[in-house]
Amino acid sequence: MSRRVLTSRSWLVGVPAAAAVLLFLMPVLGIALRTPWARLPEQLASPVVHEAMWLSLLASFGALGCALLSGLPLAVWLANGHSPLRTVARVVVMLPIVLPPVVGGIALLLAFGRAGVVGTWLDRAFGVSLPFSTAGATLAATYMGMPFFVLAVEAGLRAFDRRHLAAAATLGAGPTRRFLTVTLPMILPSVQAGALLCWARALGEFCATQTFAGNLAGSTRTMPLACGVAMETDPELAIVLSLILSAVSVVVLVSLRQRWLVAR
């Protein structure tokens, strides 16, 4: 059985495939070709870029932290069995993956906004207001990014052979030790892939952040938002910000690919 025999090399495959590659290649080339390379160091040093980068790092790693702290236990619970309650929970958690981000932003506003269902109470009880705060931007990023983490980790847990836990139990390991020394290391590839996807999605979050947390320089204007603003006022800056985000995306993709190649 040679691979060649079944490999299609007709123009029916080649021509449309080449067109598709061009569709994806040209935008990347566009950014690379239009980047003002000579003035790049100066642009990168500008406070606007620094501020946006700092906020993006805060919001995206904040989202990743929330995913690890609450998304991991959630994935464990979801993977623990089948029940109607779990099905409902899974649909609700996965919703942001398919929801248009602007709808996500509106939904967040109705729940956690100053007049929202939870927001009113938060404001009255603690004087906490999420809109127009970095915490709000982080919440939006978490809402849009964490589902990817939960999805990947739950899949990893379902594929994990639980009989290894039985082996660990007969060796004297209690539930916590079993989770930390057997489950977690064995599903690590899924956790890493989920973390990368979650972080990348949070980093790129634009619409939900703008709708819910607003577009306020210094507190909610992350890189994608700064990019959008710069398109109106300083297109060159927009290109530089796009270049940074593209570079980050490539790094994420490459590391994901390596992870998948190593793990399977």
Binding site: H164, A166, A167, A169, T170, G172, A173, L188
Partner: peptide, 21 residues
């Protein structure tokens, strides 16, 4: 008595060695 407290050494048919250790 839960399995972790029984001190019953078990060798499983599929061995179930921890692949990451």
């Amino acid at each position: 008595v839960p399995p972790e407290a029984r001190r019953a050494g078990m060798m499983f048919q599929d061995l179930l060695l921890f692949p990451h250790l």
